[in-house]
Design a binder for these strands. Structure first.
Length: 301
DNA sequence: CTCGATCCCTGGACGC
DNA sequence: TGCGTCCAGGGATCGA
């Protein structure tokens, strides 16, 4: 499940291996996850890949009509690529047979093919001219690695949603997904159902620090390989070995040995330590009768 | 504004 | 061995 660290890893790999190459042709398979497939076929051949960067969970393939994309002669057009859950983008020898679920093949001028494979097709590819790109990118929130303390504080204060939901909201912060949300909350001892605006100043600082630390450490280890994430060289990441909460249901908390719990928050599995990350009152089972019946009973299970 | 539900999609795990 | 069922989850969308 590619989140910020995994996408960063792939983008860096591609920057090393395919930046500067010219796209000769484009071959499409299934296109229901592509915004404008015909435009890919029309616009891409002849353009150069000037640079590959990460933007949230997107990869941004910057294109140029010139061989040297170093200056602003770049067309400004870009390919926006989201890996969804199971997307892969990596170069291969063009002669190598391509696997099932290979939906886009960019033939490069050095005999290789940049291939996009995605079994579930939860990903997205869009060819965007400069103006549309800016508009598209404008929908997203701050980069979690760049956001400052004051801005983070303001963000939390202005949302009454659960902190987990806020972390996952790409229009609030771009790039955080389920794994790193849970990991940063565990480190910060904050329950995923806490209301963002209710966090103390100290908690907000702690959370921002831990979120950034988790993301940086994960990038250094080339991401987490949970299901089938592989970097651009086809190598798995190592960060899954460092997970302290995510995927550890019933396993002992690394701090207090209490069994890690799993609950659905913001529609996603959320893992947390019930002792280190105390639940807010608002997280108690919501009953439609709660307004009138204020009884409390012993915790069940 | 915020929530949950639903859908998209396929493969892997699991039970029988 | 094979089949049915459930689950994973990023994101869009819709109704409450």
């Amino acid at each position: 499940m590619p989140e910020l660290p995994e996408v960063e890893t792939v983008a860096r790999g591609l920057q090393m291996t395919v930046a500067g190459r010219k796209i000769i042709s484009v071959t499409l398979g299934k296109t229901d996850f592509i915004d404008n497939p015909a435009e890919l076929e029309q616009q891409l051949p002849g353009q150069h890949i000037s640079r590959i960067e990460r933007f949230g969970k997107f990869m941004l393939v910057r294109l140029s009509r010139e061989a040297d994309g170093s200056n602003s002669a770049t067309s400004g057009d870009s390919l926006l690529v989201h890996l969804g859950m199971t997307g892969h983008l990596s170069p291969h020898a063009a002669a190598e047979p391509f696997p099932k679920h290979t939906h886009v093949r960019f033939l490069l001028d050095d005999g290789r093919e940049l291939r996009y494979t995605d079994a579930r097709r939860f990903g997205r590819i869009a060819y965007l001219a400069a103006e549309h790109l800016l508009k598209e990118l404008g929908r997203f929130g701050a980069d979690p690695l760049e956001i400052g303390e004051a801005e983070f504080e303001t963000l939390l204060r202005s949302h009454n949603s659960r902190i987990k939901a806020l972390l996952l909201d790409q229009t609030a912060l771009r790039g955080v997904g389920n794994i790193y949300a849970d990991e940063s909350l565990w480190r910060s001892r904050i329950h995923p159902m806490r209301i963002a605006s209710n966090l103390s100043v100290k908690e907000a600082r702690t959370l921002r620090k831990n979120l950034q630390a988790v993301l940086r450490e994960a990038i250094a280890l080339r991401g987490s390989s949970i299901i089938d994430f592989l970097d651009a060289d086809g190598e798995p990441g190592e960060y899954q070995r460092r997970h302290r909460a995510y995927g550890r249901e019933r396993k002992p908390c690394y701090r207090c040995k209490t069994g890690i719990r799993r609950a659905i928050v913001a529609g996603r599995s959320s893992y947390f330590c019930p002792k280190c990350q105390p639940a807010p009152r608002s997280a108690r089972k919501r009953s439609k009768r709660r307004k009138t019946v204020t009884h409390r009973r012993k915790r069940t299970s």
